[in-house]
């Protein structure tokens, strides 16, 4: 190994910054969409009618049972061109990451909702609240507190998993690390830098999440 060249990294920093924007953008868009889809899928899975619940269970099984990388490839080279008429790595990346995380988030919602005591639903029912009103005003607000820590972990996973979008040339951090590797024929500088960037991102997010959790715990 020739000596570690910091100057190369500094020269390449603008590209890494661009990559960071995309990595964070992918993760935020995917956690937001994944949370919305995940909630709907969780509610669908808990439908009392088995036939209505089956497609939602199938969805969760499919996305948790196949590799994310395969999902990214199928969506980028198959689904997105089919729908948009041309490929778009950013749309495909966000779509694959949100669909994948929604399957995990659905399970997070389901266990959070089931952790709210049965007595809450019974009290609401005797007061005449409909099942939907009970879910919206009683169960979900309580479930959110239970859900927040695992949802934060899911966000951290998304930051890391978004690196897989580099295989479809989505310009996030890992993509630029590979580009730098190709341009300078250097290994350590690009990949260690990208690793460090991910580490800083995940550590700062988890410390933000901890302080939010502490503030939410006040009302217990």
């Amino acid at each position: 190994m020739t000596s570690f060249n910091f100057q190369l990294i500094i020269d390449y920093l603008p590209y890494f910054f661009k990559g960071i924007i995309y990595t964070i953008g992918f993760s935020i868009a995917s956690i937001a969409l994944g949370t919305v889809f995940g909630l709907l899928i969780a509610l669908g899975k808990m439908l009392p009618n088995k036939f209505l619940a089956a497609p939602f269970k199938g969805y969760v099984g499919l996305f948790r049972g196949t590799p994310l990388l395969v999902q990214i490839l199928v969506i980028n080279f198959g689904v997105v061109p089919l729908v948009l008429g041309k490929s778009n790595s950013i749309v495909a990346g966000i779509l694959a990451l949100s669909l994948n995380s929604s399957a995990y988030i659905a399970e997070i919602f389901r266990s959070g909702i089931q952790a709210v005591s049965e007595g809450q639903g019974e009290a609401a029912a005797t007061l005449g609240l409909s099942p939907n009103q009970t879910m919206l005003h009683i169960i979900l607000p309580q479930a959110v507190k239970i859900i927040l820590p695992p949802l934060g972990n899911e966000f951290i996973s998304l930051i890391k998993d978004s690196s897989l979008a580099s295989v479809i040339s989505a310009p996030e951090v890992t993509y630029w690390a590979q580009a730098m590797n190709a341009q300078y024929y250097r290994v350590w500088e690009p990949y260690l830098t990208s690793g460090l960037i991910y580490l800083i991102l995940t550590l700062s997010i988890s410390s933000i999440l901890h302080s939010v959790e502490r503030r939410l715990a006040v009302n217990d």
Binding site: Q120, A125, T126, P131
Partner: peptide
């Protein structure tokens, strides 16, 4: 359905079941 009674029948539980939120 119970909710169709619209609270005409009230129930008080051993463990209160107040809404903590």
């Amino acid at each position: 359905k119970l909710c169709e009674l619209k609270g005409k029948l009230g129930m008080v539980f051993q463990h209160f079941n107040l809404f903590p939120n």
